[in-house]
């Protein structure tokens, strides 16, 4: 199953994002950002199913939760960065 990763500048923003998405009906999981996604070192991200991306982005924009980047993990395991 394709997965989406949304990275944040701090765990606090990731947590606010997590609550925003869940309240908006988008299931997601808060997790440490895989190292290759985070060029400044440690961070946190939200993982959610592909297909929820546009809903998630609009919810984050509505609640003014800034995020860094969005990555897609395809079913074959390959990863690609999406435009934020």
């Amino acid at each position: 199953m394709d997965m989406i990763f949304i990275t944040f500048r701090s765990i606090t923003l990731a947590q606010r994002g997590e609550r925003t998405l869940r309240t908006g009906g988008v299931d997601c999981a808060l997790m440490r950002t895989p190292k290759w996604m985070e060029n400044k070192g440690c961070g946190y991200c939200l993982r959610l199913r592909a297909g929820n991306e546009s809903r998630a982005v609009s919810l984050l924009a509505r609640d003014r939760v800034p995020y860094n980047k969005i990555y897609t993990q395809n079913a074959d395991g390959s990863l690609e960065e999406r435009s934020p």
Partner: peptide, 17 residues
Amino acid sequence: GTGSASLPPTMPEDLPD
């Protein structure tokens, strides 16, 4: 340490870190 943006020698710019 803040647990975030650990590579730079400076403190993160963002609130609350």
